[in-house]
Design a protein around this nucleic acid. Structure first.
Lengths: 206, 206, 206, 206
DNA sequence: AATGAATGAGATTTCATTCAT
DNA sequence: GATGAATGAAATCTCATTCAT
């Protein structure tokens, strides 16, 4: 009914699409549902997006970009590597909790997993971020010596695991704090600690 | 075609369904594809299963049952709790790797998440299993004192994370061994260790 | 409603498709129209044909095959090359008049003219047929010496022209006889004729 | 963009429409494509033309008018009827080759064949043109006596055939010269000729 | 006059499910 | 039990046309 500007419409559609894709998954979400949610006609969607795939892709790009941005901003002034890792984990988990969304979308339509490249490049960026934090932490003496690449992989995997677990199983097993502790625990130097103070912080581990 | 017995037909269909659901997801898989793969007619499917949902449900039940069975058998004679946890993790990951499948299926058809109850009860069983191992390990002195419930939750979550990470991202970030080490490391008593032997097993931590 | 055998249905659909495509062209014909005409559901069409394009292609193949068959049969016992050419032309025109149809279909969907190969190979067959008749006619002395290839091209082009003219313009400008005369006239030897008898057969060309 | 005068805009649109209609046919061409090609907005098209049909009709009118004009101009000073017929044919074929276009458009939208009347009247004009040339040629003794109406019909049909053949089949079977020869050959008086000179001009005939 | 977002009707296509054979 | 043609609803997508700006 009321004519919107192109940009308004686009972001309006993206919001609706996010809601619907998140709730029903890529195949479960229909263009009709998205259009309805965006209070637009179905045909209208196709003015702004070539097809369902492109709509979904745009959405993913935007989300991953947003998260990247958020991470970058948050980590900007942080010097302490422990704090940095904690922030990194917390922001990732908070973001996932806030949006519970396109994290899965792994449709095999037409034999090709679209959006894969997008994710890959995003994960690569994240890996680099962690590697840098780790290196600084080792240099500063906050973290013990370790194979940076390998450790990064493990941190990423564990974090990814928590995120997925949260989204797929809809269990709230972990608070970001708990998750941070699990990961940080091993990274922290323990040689000089009285071995009871910090350890006790984290039940279930030693 | 050669006539099969009812039971043969059923398991034949289930095998086909597993293959197709695994590859294309619940919505991406069509009854036609499953029938074709099972070398049976489309109508034939409906003789053995009320509908697509029931077929999928039966499949999930069977899969979870199989895994339960496998776990039970493997853990039967095992006394050492460290070995038990390692086995538990390894079998879970190997199973997931072997089947890369119904792990996701979270379709919201007609507004209701089917299969959820199934999963819940399976996870409960698994939780009980771990709890028992933990208790034994604590009693035997292999594991340090800890909140059993909480620790179980963390182990489950981390494992679940690794499984999902493997299935969704199609990365092979972790070998079952690495995963086991990550989880076990914290569970093992460390008070009496010279701090170099066992610790060094696991790079990137300590 | 009443279940038909697969073969019945297929030819039933092809008949309907012929009618609709002929009348409305490839783009003008809708699957709905074809389904309606075939007294079948729209979805039913897709049991027998992968898509609109394949349906149209099958139809063209069948038509060109039919005409080939008819020509072959008709020319089988014919020795006299004049009669052969006359038959060739007459059958082509009669066929076109009878079916007024897929002769045009030159859709440029997705940037590629489908059915082109089909037509090309059909025209090649026709060319060979004419060339053989011409050769025999020259050998027997019925036709004057001429460049067989070139003459074939001209005959084909003129005939094709008449066919198209008939179909596109919906004028009945020519009877097959008139068309035959136009083409034959030049082919016939005239050196020994009194030059007035046969010539007068064909008004406007004395 | 730079504002055009109304007339400029109109002819600009017509040029774009010609290009698009020619390449994709009436149904295959979309208003969006035409607008894009004309570097104008979709709405802009509707300022100058009531709808798609009218745009197409206008285009056809213009084209047929152009051709009429060209023919008229070319034939103006020509006295020799042989030359006149040759010109007539050549211009027609050249024009068709240059534009490969609306010649087919035979859409039956909403059950009514638009543009038919337009074509009919154009063909009528052309017929008159040929008839006049023929009459002059007979009077001057260049052409043999013949039924003018009938001969005109055959010339028109053959020419039309060549044009269609060229457009539809996208074969370049004929040069305008060959086509002219085919048609002219029969029209020329032959009673006084040595019967070898002119005859030999045209291979495959005589 | 000009724009281009929006509409709404209709096109092609897919698919779980049914049912005559 | 078994088949697979048929259905009908719904999905994705297209497009001539309109209209607020």
């Amino acid at each position: 009914m009321n004519r919107r500007s192109g940009i308004d419409s686009k972001s309006n559609i993206l919001n609706a699409a996010l809601k619907i894709f998140s709730e029903y998954g890529y195949r479960g979400a229909s263009m009709r549902m998205i259009a309805h949610n965006a209070k637009i006609s179905v045909g209208g969607l196709y003015i702004h997006f070539k097809n369902k795939e492109e709509l979904c892709l745009t959405l993913m790009k935007k989300r991953l970009g947003d998260l990247s941005q958020e991470l970058k901003k948050a980590l900007e002034g942080v010097k302490n590597p422990v704090e940095a890792i904690t922030l990194f984990i917390t922001i990732n988990l908070e973001y996932a909790k806030r949006h519970k969304e396109l994290i899965l979308t792994q449709s095999k339509e037409r034999g090709f997993t679209f959006g894969l490249g997008l994710k890959r490049s995003f994960f690569k960026k994240q890996r680099t971020l962690i590697e840098e934090i780790l290196k600084k932490g080792i240099d500063s003496g906050d973290f013990s010596e370790c194979d940076v690449k390998e450790t990064t992989k493990i941190i990423m995997g564990t974090l990814r695991g928590f995120v997925l677990s949260m989204v797929v199983d809809a269990y709230n097993l972990f608070t970001p704090e708990e998750c941070s502790k699990l990961i940080l625990y091993g990274l922290l130097r323990r040689n000089d600690k009285p071995a009871n103070e910090k350890t006790n912080e984290f039940k279930g581990r030693s």
